[in-house]
Amino acid sequence: MRVLMTTDTVGGVWTFTQELAAGLLESGCTVSLVSFGRLPSPVQQDDCQRLAGMHRERFFYRPSEIGLEWMEDNQTVYEEGASLLTREAVRFSPDVIHSNQFCYGALQLAIPCVVSAHSDVFSWFRACRGASPPPSHWLATYRETVQAGLLQCSAVIAPTRWMMRELAQAFELPQRCDVISNGRTVEAGSGSPRKMCAVTVGRLWDEAKGIDTLHTLRSPIPILVAGSTTHPDARRPPSIASATYLGELGGDQILHLFQSSSIYLCLSRYEPFGLAPLEAALCGCAVVARDLPSLREVWGDSALYFEDTRSLQEILSALAAAPELLAAARESAHRRALAFDRAQMTRHYLDLFESTVAPSERAEHAA
């Protein structure tokens, strides 16, 4: 199967699409990946070169600087992106398009298009600010392009039931809506001694990531923070107070950080799934997470949940004082994380892709 996939270079969608692309390639598919948002970083370029080196003639990457539908300057995003994707579709001849932006569900091509819903502006505002976003020309454009993509796509996928319900509050959804959990496959590490420290990873400028929780936290253990401080629209990130800022790390550096740490802090106020805590748990960290319905759906009883700074401090103090409690939390998180692997995610997406292709096209593909 030939899959034309979109991604963005700004957030966690990049990690998701790298993982799914790897799974599809391992399954024998051919993948063309087109990125939006901004030009890829050197680390992201390396990610794609690694896939191209492992799967010669079956992986192609086309970067672009075309914006994303949620960015402030979104008036021509769809038209520019649709033009690029149409040209790529002519060149690549995909069996299916997998868009990780809503708007490209409206592509006027005779090719099935599956849209993955990773987040949306309306649920972000409800979670972070407790209200709907204020009316504006930008918001009207966003709503219009997102709604068009959702109604014209072949299917919409969300990583959690929570995300699908949130999306349905703001938009009319297509007839086919499925939930497919994100997946990740990483090594747990060498088993070398871990530092008694907590780590968190995220865009420091994004209030959804809850980094400001660290302002008044009196942690009994060191806290390390990694992530971008550069907002696409040049907003300033918050201070991280007494935590240690490590900068923006590459994928391998982040995994090494997880493999040498004991606890992952999921501080997010808005987290439709959460790839970073999944990666950390696979690397052997305990997961301490804000008590959100989406995170409860993913982690069940395998994470420790906090509601405010005080309860977070109490959990960290308990883990620091009781090695057996920390060991049990690490084991529970790791066992749960193993259920969300690349293989299960790829299998479900492949089944979905196959079901959207017309029977005659499936027969031609099989031949």
Rank of each mutant, 00 (worst) to 15 (best):
P237K: 07
P237S: 11
S239V: 13
I240C: 06
I240F: 05
S242E: 15
T244H: 14
Y245F: 15
G247Y: 13
G247C: 12
L249S: 06
G251C: 11
D252V: 08
Q253V: 03
I254D: 00
L255Q: 12
L255C: 11
H256C: 11
H256F: 11
L257S: 07
L257E: 08
L257V: 10
F258R: 00
Q259P: 05
Q259F: 05
Q259L: 08
S260E: 13
S262P: 06
I263M: 10
C266L: 10
S268L: 01
R269N: 06
R269K: 12
Y270C: 01
Y270S: 00
F273L: 02
F273G: 00
L275T: 01
L275C: 03
A276Y: 02
A276D: 09
A276L: 04
L278V: 09
E279T: 01
A280V: 02
A280L: 04
G284M: 02
V287N: 00
V287A: 01
R290P: 00
L292Y: 01
P293W: 05
L295H: 04
E297M: 03
E297N: 05
V298H: 03
V298S: 02
W299G: 00
D301V: 08
D301I: 06
D301H: 12
S302F: 08
L304F: 07
Y305H: 06
D308N: 15
S311Y: 11
Q313F: 02
A318H: 12
A321P: 07
L326I: 10
A328V: 13
A328S: 15
A329Y: 05
A329Q: 03
E331V: 12
E331P: 03
A333K: 06
H334A: 15
R336M: 08
R336D: 01
A337R: 02
L338N: 09
L338S: 13
L338W: 11
L338P: 00
A339H: 15
A343Y: 11
Q344S: 15
M345P: 04
M345Q: 14
T346P: 05
T346R: 04
Y349I: 05
Y349P: 04
L350K: 07
L350W: 07
S355T: 10
A358E: 14
A358V: 12
P359F: 08
